Amino acid sequence: MSFEKITLEVTQLAKAAGEFMLAELKHFDPTKIEHKYGENFNLVSYVDKETESRLVEGLSGLLPGSGFITEEGTVEQATDQEFVWVIDPLDGTTNFLHAYPQFCTSIGLLQGGKPVAGIIYEPFRDEMFYTWKDGGAWMNKERLSVSKVDRVQSSLLACGFPSRQNQKTEAYMNMILRITKESHGFRRIGSAALDLAYTARGWFEGYFEYNINSWDIAAGILLVQEAGGTVTDFKGEENYLFGGEIISSNGRIHQELIDMISESMA
């Protein structure tokens, strides 16, 4: 099986998904916004669901018998197969609903629970990020490499803010405040997939978040790794895809980030 061939075929599906989203945005009816679980911040629309359905159909044809983990649950969720697609059809839904140009489609492929291909498409700028195992990381045919900055003090970082409050929330926010003062600052895009893509591109030195889902990060994990970066959980271990927390970086500042996060979140 050629992961390169599969990846390049999936980029065409992602491109079509992005074109559909942009077309719908031109005449989107805000009365069609839904709230998941009754939460004001947890939004979804028919665009998310229709995009996911189209992707599932196309991916099923590319790799018959594969399983799916998807955000919107438009297909039976199955993880027992050797190959599993992990899809966020519209990462950055709130941005999309406000016509803020920071959203994307994220598609990861797992083999035996490990990422072997990843595609992230940002339609506003027509930026296609893609990678496959041992194939490098790419954006629009340009090979990507993480930045060479070697200190948090000189780093621009990305993070996500937890929407749901829990016992870690205050410590997490205090930790962000601390690192803000000891770095070049944070950017909060509102799309974990793009945070990872931009880390692979070298625009960010690192990105971290907790209360994160597998469909947000499955594609971006491999992108960062293939660009020469490092991905772990907050403990520096490998429980990041389904563990609910992630640190990604250029590798050079990784241990420093782990230490700072560990001190704050202990």
Rank of each mutant, 00 (worst) to 15 (best):
residue 173 M to C: 13
residue 157 L to W: 07
residue 202 G to D: 10
residue 163 S to L: 11
residue 183 S to D: 05
residue 182 E to M: 09
residue 249 S to T: 12
residue 218 A to D: 06
residue 192 A to V: 15
residue 186 F to I: 09
residue 216 D to V: 13
residue 247 I to M: 07
residue 249 S to W: 07
residue 201 R to T: 03
residue 222 L to V: 00
residue 236 G to Y: 03
residue 222 L to M: 01
residue 158 A to V: 11
residue 234 F to D: 01
residue 243 G to Y: 03
residue 169 T to R: 04
residue 156 L to A: 11
residue 166 N to A: 13
residue 222 L to R: 00
residue 173 M to I: 15
residue 200 A to P: 02
residue 237 E to C: 04
residue 184 H to L: 15
residue 205 E to C: 15
residue 221 I to M: 08
residue 225 Q to W: 01
residue 229 G to S: 05
residue 184 H to A: 12
residue 202 G to V: 12
residue 209 E to T: 13
residue 183 S to I: 13
residue 227 A to P: 01
residue 172 Y to W: 12
residue 214 S to E: 11
residue 241 L to D: 06
residue 183 S to M: 10
residue 182 E to R: 06
residue 174 N to C: 03
residue 229 G to A: 08
residue 242 F to T: 13
residue 206 G to I: 00
residue 202 G to R: 04
residue 165 Q to T: 12
residue 205 E to Q: 15
residue 214 S to A: 14
residue 174 N to Y: 01
residue 157 L to D: 01
residue 219 A to F: 12
residue 155 S to L: 10
residue 241 L to F: 14
residue 247 I to T: 04
residue 171 A to E: 08
residue 206 G to W: 00
residue 241 L to W: 08
residue 213 N to G: 03
residue 184 H to F: 11
residue 252 R to C: 10
residue 191 S to L: 15
residue 171 A to H: 11
residue 221 I to S: 03
residue 194 L to N: 09
residue 161 F to E: 09
